[in-house]
């Protein structure tokens, strides 16, 4: 199959269409059989994303195809999946940016149990997140107004506040795949967000948790997480900052 723009010189304003083959990993736990691949050939348009292609399959060809999605523009984190071997959000991946000469391969994210088609069990992921105390810890009386924080203090942890908990990073990590005990990048990112917040007083406890054998030291700095992050968070850098904090901050 070839993917060529049909009539690139179409009339003014018309959106060019093209053919795309989607190769999707299917799994139905109620069928009694294992997973299998299914291909669908679709006609798609210039601004269409992988999510649009999945919707076209679901709405017009096979209603049983199961995947999560909600906001459809990269802020809710529902539709992380493995697209052509890379973890991405289906709603942020434009078809025209992929090599359409070959089928677009779509699989569930790896390392979490598959429940049906592209839907995985997110509970282990959220369990790791909950373990790092992902909330502001303070002592003493609440101030009557806001706590002061300088623009510079706010900037230190800005990057890690962007996390949408989509699990693209954690499920791209070879360490997470191989042992399943590792907290994973997303949990460390969310710990970082508080460890480096000038208002927080729980850093010591969090650093102790992350100094655990399943904590930050399992990171092998493969940068998969940083490449996978749909929010552009420099995750490997954040993990390195947490490692450095464990070494330099006494507790």
């Amino acid at each position: 199959m070839t993917a060529t723009l049909e009539n690139p010189q179409t009339e003014m304003g018309a959106i060019p269409s093209f053919q795309v083959t989607m190769r999707v990993e299917r799994f139905d736990p109620e069928s009694g059989s294992g997973s299998y691949w299914q291909e669908f050939t679709l006609t798609m348009h210039g601004t269409d994303r992988v999510l649009d292609a999945l919707h076209q399959i679901k709405w017009d060809l096979d209603g049983s195809l199961a995947f999560r999605r909600s906001c459809a523009h990269g802020v809710c984190g529902s539709d992380a999946m493995r697209i052509n071997g890379r973890n991405r959000l289906a709603c942020k991946t434009l078809l025209k940016d992929l090599d359409l000469d070959k089928p677009v391969v779509v699989e569930p994210i790896k390392g979490l149990p598959v429940k049906k088609d592209l839907i995985v069990d997110m509970e282990p992921f959220f369990a790791s997140y909950r373990e790092v105390m992902p909330f502001l810890v303070t002592t003493g009386n609440q101030p009557s107004r806001e706590r002061l924080q300088s623009v510079e203090q706010r900037a230190v942890f800005d990057d890690t506040t962007k996390c949408i908990l989509c699990a693209a990073c954690t499920t791209s990590c070879p360490v997470f795949w191989s042992d399943g005990q590792y907290f994973g990048p997303a949990a460390i990112v969310n710990a970082h967000r508080f460890i480096f917040d000038s208002r927080d007083e729980g850093a010591q406890q969090r650093l102790q948790i992350l100094n655990d054998k399943e904590g930050v030291w399992r990171c092998r700095t493969t940068f998969n997480c940083t490449e996978a992050c749909p929010r552009g968070i420099e995750i490997t850098k954040a993990i390195a900052e947490v490692k450095r904090a464990i070494v330099t901050r006494s507790f």
Binding site: E146, R147, L148, V151, F157, D197
Partner: peptide, 20 residues
């Protein structure tokens, strides 16, 4: 309502004086 959120940790943008 805003101050509640700040006390919960919401990272509001800040003025040069460090206020919301």
């Amino acid at each position: 309502a805003v101050l509640d959120l700040e006390r919960m940790g919401l990272p509001f943008n800040r003025t040069p004086e460090g206020r919301i």
